[in-house]
């Protein structure tokens, strides 16, 4: 996916004769084209009502970018957005923190012990393949429709990318280095501290990036189906009262948060990978 893509881009840049023009020119062209398409689509969308006549019923569902932006602006200006956003952010932060607290130690443990790994493998495979959404009705039954069922969904979504990537990073640790440290009398804890954890950090960061995306998705769906408060609830209520602007405004907020946070993690990732010859694997 995105990772292989980045890798392959380098290859094609080297391999193809088409891309011998300066990298700067190429970057400008790619940015200009990409922006132009988005702007063009927005303009077409904006002008659509002037060209296409719509039935009364369809107009109920229809909105244009300028109205969405106005709604978005109004939500921030009046401050009405902060309360639901805060509720969603709380569930997101608690769930992600719990997932990190549980996923990293468990990943290291499973990476270091073949027996434990073999025993946990069926459960990890099953939970990772299943959309966590399927547990939502059950979690609502157990935890109510407050913040905790949301936290649980976020936790379940974010746990597995972290766990699996940590495990992968630990397994990837150089056996020679481990043996050297052992020869000098290191205990299991020293092996972890000196070799295993530094080696698996880039993997963990990739896991974190995937986990952030899953966590945001978790907040959205959990709030759609069982919650009293939050940005997702706002959107569902807006949708059922045909307030389409608010739905799109919410989508934009979620998308922006998702892009910003994965972007931040990606910065850390690139910083860490700068001196590394090979990239960390994803999933």
């Amino acid at each position: 996916m995105a990772e292989t893509q980045a890798l392959d881009l380098d290859l094609s840049a080297v391999g193809s004769a088409r891309v011998v023009t300066s990298a700067f020119k190429q970057r400008v062209e790619s940015m200009a084209l990409g922006t132009a398409v988005i702007v063009l689509l927005l303009i077409i969308w904006e002008l659509l009502p002037y060209f296409v006549s719509m039935k009364q019923g369809t107009r109920l569902f229809f909105t244009v970018p300028s109205r969405i932006l106005a709604t978005l602006w109004q939500m921030f200006a009046s401050g009405s957005i902060w309360a639901p956003l805060g509720v969603s952010a709380t569930a997101f932060a608690i769930g992600l923190a719990l997932a990190i607290a549980a996923g990293l130690p468990l990943g290291i443990l499973l990476g270091r012990s073949n027996t434990l790994n073999a025993m946990f493998d069926p459960f990890i495979t099953a939970f990772n393949a299943t959309p966590r959404l399927v547990f939502l009705p059950l979690l609502m039954l157990w935890l109510g429709i407050g913040v905790w069922s949301k936290v649980a969904i976020v936790f379940l979504g974010a746990l597995f990318p972290l766990l699996i990537n940590t495990h992968e990073g630990v397994r990837n640790a150089d056996k020679l280095l481990i043996n050297v440290v052992r020869s000098f009398g290191a205990k299991e804890w020293d092996v972890a501290r000196l070799v295993v954890i530094p080696n698996s950090l880039p993997f963990i960061v990739v896991g974190l990036r995937l986990a952030v995306g899953r966590a945001i998705l978790g907040v959205v769906v959990a709030e759609f189906f069982g919650a009293q408060d939050g940005l997702g609830v706002l959107m569902v209520r807006a949708a059922s009262s045909f307030n389409v602007d608010v739905v799109f405004a919410g989508l934009i907020i979620f998308a922006a948060l998702s892009l910003i946070m994965t972007g931040l993690v990606k910065l850390v990732e690139e910083r860490m990978n700068r001196w590394r010859p090979q990239r960390a694997a994803t999933e």
Partner: peptide
């Protein structure tokens, strides 16, 4: 860029609509 925006945004959010 357009596809990346779509891919990164939680499109599930459009489900009610």
């Amino acid at each position: 860029p357009l596809m990346t925006v779509f891919y990164a945004s939680p499109l599930v959010a459009l489900a009610p609509l």
